[in-house]
Amino acid sequence: MADLAHGKPGAGTVPLADHAPTTRRDFLTVAGYAIAAVGAVCVAWPILDSMNPAADVLAAGAPVDIDLSRVQPGQQIVVLWRSRPIFVVNRTPELLKTLQDPRDISLLSDPNSTAPQQPEYATNWHRSIQPQYLVLVGICTHLGCIPSFMPQPNSVSPGWLGGYFCPCHGSRYDLSGRVYSGVPAPYNLPVPPYRFLSKTMIRIGENPPDGGDFSLESVEQI
């Protein structure tokens, strides 16, 4: 019946082959099918959008307040913000010294934090607002595991200055979350937006009043 399509439209009782569909594309028919296709696309949006974060998920990302007096010198605490682990470290002067050690800097992949992994106010050698307190998103930029906090020198390998070691694929970061070269992780650990409410209270999830509108949506990689 392949000849069917090439017949001429007829009338009355002419046989099927003669009634065959016209090859002429009628404007109304094309318009009808086109509108229907547009409608189908319009319906697809609400269906797909339902998979985006719902209002309760977005609201659960509300800021979290942390009392820094809970963090002993040289220690780290982990809090959950937007379902992500946030590292808060109280860095002693000795630990801070490692960050400016030329030996450390020469091994880093991005020592000056040029990739947008942190807000403006943390784009400095210590990657924080105050040098003493480090705030990081504790998710390896390689494939999303949680790096272990290893502040003791030589604890990971001989010559280790203290930093983060990811148990999954061996990525290494220093004590400001800067990634070393030669490991699978491509970027420094991200710094979330945060601000000081008082000398000992920080709020994670809000920029300082003059700190711009940084958000984690704009970082290269979490």
Binding site: P9, A11, H19, T29, A31, G32, I35, A36, C42
Partner: peptide
């Protein structure tokens, strides 16, 4: 409103296509 417009056009198209048959 969209569906009404679509149905209207489809009705016109249906009449056009079937016109050949009668």
């Amino acid at each position: 409103l969209f569906l009404l417009a679509m149905t209207g056009v489809l009705y016109g198209a249906k009449r056009r296509v079937w016109k050949d048959l009668h």
